[in-house]
Amino acid sequence: MMCRRQCVLLVPSLLRALPRVQLAVGASCAFGLVWLLSAEPDGARAVVALQYAALALSLGVASILEDDAADTVAAVPPSLLFRRVLTIAIVVPAFVVTWAALMSLSAVATSSAPAITLQVGTLVLVTIALGAALTRGGAISGPLVVIAFLGADAFAPDWALAPDLGDWRWDAIWAGLGAGALLALLVVSRDPARRVPRLQAPSREPQREENDRNRVAPRSSRRLLRSRPCRNPATVRADNLTMPQEPA
């Protein structure tokens, strides 16, 4: 119940905070690339077109977790993980619709569709996780993923470019990469104000607490401690002064 109430309150704010221009630019570039690259009637380049569209979409979603007011909202009751999951949940439906439209536009073969979808999911997860891990990482994570993917395209085209559904290694690599990115995203989304376990040896703690308990305060401090707790010590000293009595 509490969670639902927080969702209702947070969703409009998160919608306003989303980088809508970047999302729109990424989706527009994805549609443009698919339209340009998959123009051939036999659909030979549909897979490549979808991969470039996936890169454009990754660039668009790179900074959805960036929050200019992160320091301010760090102390609000909903945790960082909750807010980030909510943000991703807001973006996911639009992303799914966009990707489905891109796949229908590219007319990719049905056999290649799951592999490409796995790849775009992994690319987006890696981009978001990298953007969440780095300080202001949204600007860096997208280009890093793009250049790394294009480099893998040049040096290991068998695994980056040509999805082969019969080859289990391709699926295993991209699924493993996606799982690792999801784990990394969960790790970096832990609440910064979480309770951190102490690294001191536990055997010394009872002794220290006992010493604190038995520590004897100096005499002047004891007198001050007996006075009212929130008063300034200087005021206490002034109150204790005895003024000379006027003779009657």
């Binding site: 221009v21 990424g26 690339l33 490549v48 454009a56 997208g142 793009v146």
Partner: peptide, 17 residues
Amino acid sequence: SPIVGAVAVVALIAARL
């Protein structure tokens, strides 16, 4: 916008296809 440089890279590489 920070997305423009990376989009330009994607477009330049795609132009070489």
